[in-house]
Design a protein around this nucleic acid. Structure first.
Length: 814
RNA sequence: GCCCGGGUGGCGAAACAGGCAGACGCAGCAGACUUAAAAUCUGCUGGCCCGAAAGGGCCGUGCGGGUUCGAGUCCCGCCCCGGGCACCA
């Protein structure tokens, strides 16, 4: 049979169409197979699908296919993460009817998504731009409002001038907006909606234990850090004005070394303590701190003229204002213990405030006052601390906290770094927050039966800082659902991270119009068995979705405490030394690559570039090598398909090729079951193809049939279109990815003989073949008799001979 | 500063229980086919040295030590690169 040229376009188009019509890639209802839920974190519907996203697909889709072939009932909906419209597209959205624009955008994205994820289940497709999705976002919001998990307050918030909107703390990266890396965020005081994620802070932290082993340590560390739990003590110092000032410390055992109290410049008590000039200085400090990297700012402060009394020692210490004290953490005031805290040390040294050591190292001396070069921050034994002297630090902390609580001037306290999640956005795009402001009734939730509140279509994108929705009278002016009087609709929209916090639940029941989803269906599919995505979501999406899961559990909707048992974070794709991103203009569009070489090549190439957890530096050149290999496979298959259908026979060539085949099956199976190092899986396929070419002329029909058939199956998870085409050429029907995964025969995979390496003093000198299981003594004899070894050992003393059966003989001579 | 990764040919990488360093691919060189080119197929390809060749020797996994018959892999001490966190009291 003549070979055919490899025409990837024709092949991919053909199967793409067939698979669209068939329902074969879908999860089964009432399956007897064990379930497996695979999900990728992909951006949708914004932006261009680039090669980094293909990497996400290539991994997830290969896994989904493999799992099916291994007997699982696999749910593999299209994975996406709903970031909504990028702000820079607002201008476009303004020129065209926004919804139409978005729907077009979605259609284009769907085409690309489908082309790359052939096992993608598009009956489950949902979009956060759709009214139904708004409805359930709003439904969740109202349930949270009922439980006090959603609230409104005036707060200093991060404002990105480019986005013209507020950002959550998690979305501020190095003082700048996460979308505009060179635009510093400003601080503005605005009425904002918050979700009370802090209520779950303890549980979010504690439950990470359940994720150990399944989630990368790196991600857990980042979350732990972000939640930032610390145990300490709150203590009231009594001001000379009579008011208490409460400080938070993790080292109450050092309190006898406290030589001043320092307030944040924004601290509410500061105003009363300061005169006009002082207030101006405090304000200047706040302003100077805005938009700056906090680490760069030099510590500054000034004395308020007031004193406060230490409740343990009775000592009076001066009260200062310090620019390094954060209003947002702890109580916004600290006691400074310069001898035992580096920051306090720096501050007090600068201003000549006494530095008094009160902790000595367990096996050391107490430092002398004025002779410290750095702060001693470790635990030790308390000294010069009145009745507490002689106690170890840890015990002192515990007992001193108890005393504070007993006597009412403080208590043991736990402080978190994480703050409530600000979800208000002044963007046009996003789910409208479903509340109505009535002058008589206050904040009134929109009744469930009036959901969804939809976005108006004719909107001017102003970028002025007010929500564009505020400019649409038909949207804003409503009657109060409670009293019927004139009222105003809330014009803020939700952060799109709200969408992505629960989209993966909706996949289990995308058509439900009674509830966000049927709890029974969630019970079957959840938790997600394998979630795959970039590490950049470690403290955004991945913490929000854990929070949502816990809220949903408390609402009785789900039973699982965590959304995903296993998380895989793939490495970033780097181009020209920088992370691929639209703003840098270095994206390699997936479509371009697919047009030139095909989706199979694009997927295989990104997998071949390196292990999936590692970063890869993208270069176009290599894609041709993969394309060549796929062409070699295709041509080999088409010119030998005829012989394969008939043939019988057998011989040494058959043996060689089949051995390589079974070794390849073993290797690729192992790669799937352990590290997902698909780069080596693909290398193994290439090796197999090279052996097939070398032995082609001498292969029997039977061997050809076996090797081609199993090669198609091995290729199935990585290069679905080509795999299917070969399967078809061989005369099989049905989708290749619904076949069982090939098993390898250990006998077939075995080499006939072992190659024994002979070393002298650890250096490679010779090698010979021996049958497997040759006794140690025989190997030693043969090695010593070897003609290359003889001259190296004769006349020398043989100290020792180490023999590793089937592998190595090492002769040690002197 | 603290916490994670990582450092192997011209390049991407492999070596998964301490046992042949560089599989596989890219780039490069040579040959076959061709009037020619492309495509395709075949071979070579870490460095240095000896040799006409066959072949052989030495060096080589960021640096310095150590353990071991044997170290890219384990231990100790450094250097460099990437990522995360960073006045969090």
């Amino acid at each position: 049979m003549p070979e055919k040229p490899y025409d990837h376009n024709q092949i991919e188009l053909k199967w793409h169409r067939q698979w669209q019509d068939a329902a074969l890639y879908k999860a089964e209802e009432n399956s007897t197979r064990p379930k497996y839920y695979v999900l990728e974190m992909l951006p949708y519907p914004s932006g261009t699908l680039h090669i980094g996203h293909i990497r996400n697909y290539a991994i997830g889709d290969a896994l989904a296919r493999y799992k099916w072939m291994r007997g699982f009932n696999v749910l593999h909906p299209m994975g996406w993460d709903a970031f909504g419209l990028p702000a820079e597209n607002a201008a476009i959205a303004n020129r065209r009817p926004p919804r139409e624009w978005t729907l077009q955008n979605i259609e284009a994205m769907k085409r690309t998504h489908r082309r790359f994820a052939f096992s993608y289940d598009w009956d489950r497709e949902i979009s956060t731009c759709e009214p139904e999705y708004y409805r359930w976002n709003q439904w969740f919001f109202l349930r949270m409002l009922e439980r006090g998990l959603a609230y409104r307050k005036k707060a200093l918030v991060n404002w990105c001038p480019k986005c013209a909107t507020v950002l959550a703390n998690e979305q501020v990266v190095e003082g700048c907006c996460w979308r505009h890396e060179s635009t510093p965020v400003e601080q503005r005081a605005l009425e904002q909606w918050f979700l009370r994620i802090t209520r779950y802070a303890d549980e979010l932290l504690a439950d990470m234990e359940k994720l150990e082993g399944g989630w990368p340590e790196r991600v857990l560390a980042m979350q732990r850090n972000w939640i930032g739990r610390s145990e300490g003590t709150e203590v009231d110092f009594r001001l000379d004005t009579g008011e208490p000032v409460r400080v938070f410390t993790t080292r109450v055992d050092t309190i006898y070394g406290a030589t001043c109290v320092i307030l944040a410049p924004e601290h509410p008590l500061a105003e009363g303590l300061l005169d006009e000039a002082g207030r101006a200085r405090a304000k200047a400090m706040v302003d100077a701190r805005a938009n700056r990297d906090p680490g760069d700012i030099e510590k500054e402060g000034f004395f308020t003229g007031h004193y406060a009394t230490n409740p343990y020692s009775g000592e009076q210490v001066p009260v200062w204002i310090g620019n390094f004290v954060l209003i947002g953490y702890g109580t916004g005031a600290i006691m400074a213990v310069p001898a035992h805290d580096e920051r306090d040390f720096e501050f007090c040294t600068k201003y000549g405030i006494p530095i008094r050591p009160v902790i000595r190292p367990v096996d050391g001396e107490l430092a002398r006052e004025g002779h410290l070069e750095t702060a001693f921050t470790e635990d030790g034994v308390m000294e010069n601390s009145g009745e507490w002297s002689g106690l170890p630090s840890a015990e002192g902390r515990r007992r001193m906290s108890e005393k504070a609580e007993r006597e009412g001037f403080g208590k043991a306290a736990v402080t978190f770094r994480i703050k409530d999640w600000g979800i208000s956005r002044q963007r046009y795009w996003g789910t409208p927050i479903p509340v109505i402001h009535c002058e008589r009734c206050g904040v009134v939730p929109v009744p469930d039966e009036q959901l969804p509140v939809l976005l108006p279509l004719d909107v001017n994108i102003t970028g002025t800082g007010r929500s564009p929705l505020a400019e649409v009278p038909e949207f804003v002016n409503v009657s109060c659902p409670r009293c019927g009087g004139a009222a105003r609709r809330e014009t803020d929209t939700m952060d799109t991270f709200v969408d992505s916090s629960w989209y993966f639940y909706r996949y289990c029941d995308p058509q439900n119009d009674r509830l966000p989803f049927d709890p029974a269906k969630i019970d079957y599919w959840f938790p997600i068995d394998q979630y795959i995505g970039g590490v950049e979501h470690a403290i955004l999406h991945l913490i929000y979705s854990r929070f949502f899961t816990k809220v949903m559990r408390d609402l009785g909707l789900v039973k699982n405490d965590e959304p995903a048992t296993r998380l895989f974070t793939q490495g970033m794709v780097i181009a020209e030394g920088a992370k691929m991103s639209k703003s840098k203009g270095n994206v390699v569009a997936a479509d371009m690559l697919a047009d030139k070489f095909g989706a199979d090549t694009a997927r295989l190439f990104i997998l071949f570039a390196g292990p999936p957890e590692k970063e890869v530096d993208w270069r176009n050149e290599g894609a041709e090598g993969i394309y060549r290999t796929l062409g070699r496979i295709y041509r080999f298959a088409t010119r030998n398909a005829g012989r394969a259908r008939e043939g019988a026979g057998g011989g040494e060539s058959d043996r060689k090729v089949l051995r390589k085949l079974h070794q390849a099956i073993r290797k690729i199976t192992e790669d799937f079951e352990s590290r997902w190092h698909f780069n080596t899986s693909i290398a193994t396929i290439m090796e197999l193809v090279n052996v097939m070419y070398a032995e082609e002329a001498r292969l029997s029909g039977a061997a050809l049939a076996e090797v081609l058939e199993k090669l198609a199956l091995l290729l199935g998870p990585f290069a679905p279109y080509l795999a299917q085409e070969i399967w078809d050429e061989l005369g099989h029907t049905g989708p290749v990815f619904r076949q069982p995964w090939p098993a390898y025969d250990p006998e077939m995979a075995k080499e006939d003989e072992a190659e024994i390496v002979v070393q002298v003093n650890g250096k490679l000198r010779s090698r010979f073949h021996a049958v497997f299981g040759t006794p140690k003594e025989d190997l030693e004899c043969r090695a010593l008799a070897d003609e290359k070894i003889q001259p190296l050992v004769s006349g020398k003393q043989i100290v020792k001979v180490i023999v590793v059966p089937d592998r190595i003989v090492n002769i040690v001579v002197r």
